[in-house]
Structures are given as structure tokens and as C-alpha cells.
Simulated assay, not measured.
Amino acid sequence: MTATTLGSLLYEGKAKRVFATDQSDVVAVEYKDDATAFNALKKAQLVGKGELNCQISARLFELLERNGIPTHYRALQKANWMLVRPMRIVPVEVVVRNTAFGSLCKQMPIEPGTPLDPPLLDLYYKDDAYGDPLLTDARLERLALLSADQRREMGRLAMAVNTCLRSFFADIGLQLVDFKIELGFSAEGELVVADEISPDTCRLWDLKVGDSSDRILDKDRFRQDLGGVVEAYGEVLKRVQGACPPPRLCK
């Protein structure tokens, strides 16, 4: 991957900025140190978080690729900068749950920690103004965001990601409780995994820690005011680095 020249800002979200480059088939993503929760009602700056999430995401995107799962990832540019393919992002947040926790236990009569077999797939309309509501198939059809075939492919891809990540994390002593991903269409019309895969988007528990707070190595540390957010993300990166080769770098 050759070096690129940064262009104009295309989009800024809660955790990332996306820039055009001098190559039409490449955009640059800056991972920010901003931390948000509860639809950005809670905010903070956590120095180093952006770099950690970028480094973790790069390695996990390459892990998915090695397992035949397409992503938007191209290469790392700097410590907290990633080069990716431009995508038409589907405004649907895809959540896969292996263990009942968080919002699910507030919406259903199910105890936190209950194993979910098979894993539960939830789709949410990604729009803060509407509170990211849960989508039924009928609502998804009404919004005309995806065809029936594309909806099935979205589910298949999400479950393939889950199988890959769940096994990988277990091997490094982490339980993948649940995660959310975003998907997008490439210029060729292929549905691929986009955005990021990090402790911001995955609920991860240390399998060797029994305490329900101390085991948390993800964004719940920020949501629940547990402290040690950057340290927890650093522990995840350390384990991921130990199990993955160094990521591709632009030259």
C-alpha cells in the first residue's frame, strides 16, 4: 500500500474522522481519543484511546480477512490513522449477542450472564434522533434499506464474524459477550465489514477474573465509571498483538 496525501474532511463521528485522499479508492480514518456513551450524553477525552482502538482494529480486520471475511481495511498509516476503501455505509447497526447482558436484560425477562445458543442477532436503525430503535424485518422492509437477499447476507456475514472473533478471543483468554459492527457496500457492490472492531464496540470479559467489575475490558468501564479504561484497552491490545502478526503499513 503506497503512501497517500490527506484531503478534505468527509465526515466526523463520535470516535473517528474520515478524510479524502489523493487516491480515489482510498480514504483515511483518524481514530479520536473522544469517549462517549448513552448517545453522547456522557463524554470524556481519554488520551491514547484512539491509538489503541486503531491498532486493535487493524489486527482484527486482518484476522477476518485471513478467514475469508471481507472488510474495508487497507493498511495502517500512522499509530491512530487507518487507510480504508470508501464505502456506502448501511445505516443499520448489527449486534450479535453470545451472552445476555446490558440493554437486552432491560428489554427482556432474561438474567444477565445467560448464554445465548444460538447467538442472538439484533438490528438497529442507526439514527441518534430516533434513539437507534430496534428493527423488525417489516420495519427494515418499510425503510427499503436492504433487499431480502442483502438482509440475509448481512446476517450470514455477522455470524461469520462472530464465529471468527469468538474463537480468537477465547484463545487469548477473553469472552466475547457481544459486539456491534457496521457494514457497507464497496464500489463493486460487495457487502463488507466496516467501521472498527475494538473494546469500544465489543463487550469483552477476562476469563481468568471472577469479579464482575474487574473482568471488564471494554467500554463498560467508561459507562459504569469503573476507571482504568485506557489500561483495559491496552491489555486487550497486548493480547491481540501476542496472537496476531504486525498489521500492514503504507509505504
Rank of each mutant, 00 (worst) to 15 (best):
A160W: 04
P119K: 01
Y233K: 11
F19K: 09
G13D: 03
L165M: 14
F179A: 08
G234H: 07
R17C: 14
D127F: 08
L83W: 07
T99H: 04
D195V: 02
G189V: 05
C54V: 11
A138H: 05
V26G: 03
R17K: 15
K106L: 14
M108E: 10
E93K: 08
V240I: 13
F185K: 01
A144P: 00
S198V: 02
S198G: 09
Q23G: 00
E111W: 11
E93Y: 09
L217W: 00
L183S: 09
C105G: 00
A15I: 12
V26Y: 00
L226C: 05
A160N: 11
A40E: 15
P245T: 14
V96I: 14
A20Y: 00
V18I: 14
K43C: 05
L123N: 03
R97D: 06
M87S: 13
P91R: 03
L76Q: 13
R152G: 02
D220R: 07
V177Q: 03
G228C: 06
V94M: 08
L191Y: 11
P118M: 13
R74A: 01
L249G: 09
L46A: 13
D220N: 12
Y31R: 00
K42F: 03
I89H: 02
D195I: 01
L41C: 05
L120D: 07
C202V: 11
E62R: 02
F61D: 09
G68S: 06
E65G: 09
D33W: 12
G234F: 10
V84S: 09
L146D: 04
E30G: 03
R17F: 12
L174T: 07
V27T: 06
A40D: 15
E111S: 14
P245E: 15
A160P: 02
L116S: 11
N80Y: 08
L140Q: 06
S167D: 15
A148M: 06
K49E: 07
K14R: 13
L120F: 09
T2E: 15
T71H: 11
P70C: 06
R97C: 08
K42E: 03
S8D: 11
K106G: 04
L52D: 03
D178Y: 01
R59W: 12
M87D: 13
L64T: 05
M159F: 15
V27K: 03
D206L: 08
L83K: 05
L226W: 12
D195P: 00
L120Y: 05
E141I: 05
F185D: 01
L10T: 04
G234N: 01
K78I: 00
S57E: 03
A35Y: 05
Q23T: 09
D122N: 07
L207C: 14
P199H: 02
S24P: 13
P133Q: 07
S147G: 15
Y73H: 12
S103G: 01
M87K: 04
E12T: 10
D25G: 03
K14Q: 09
L104G: 10
D171V: 01
N67W: 15
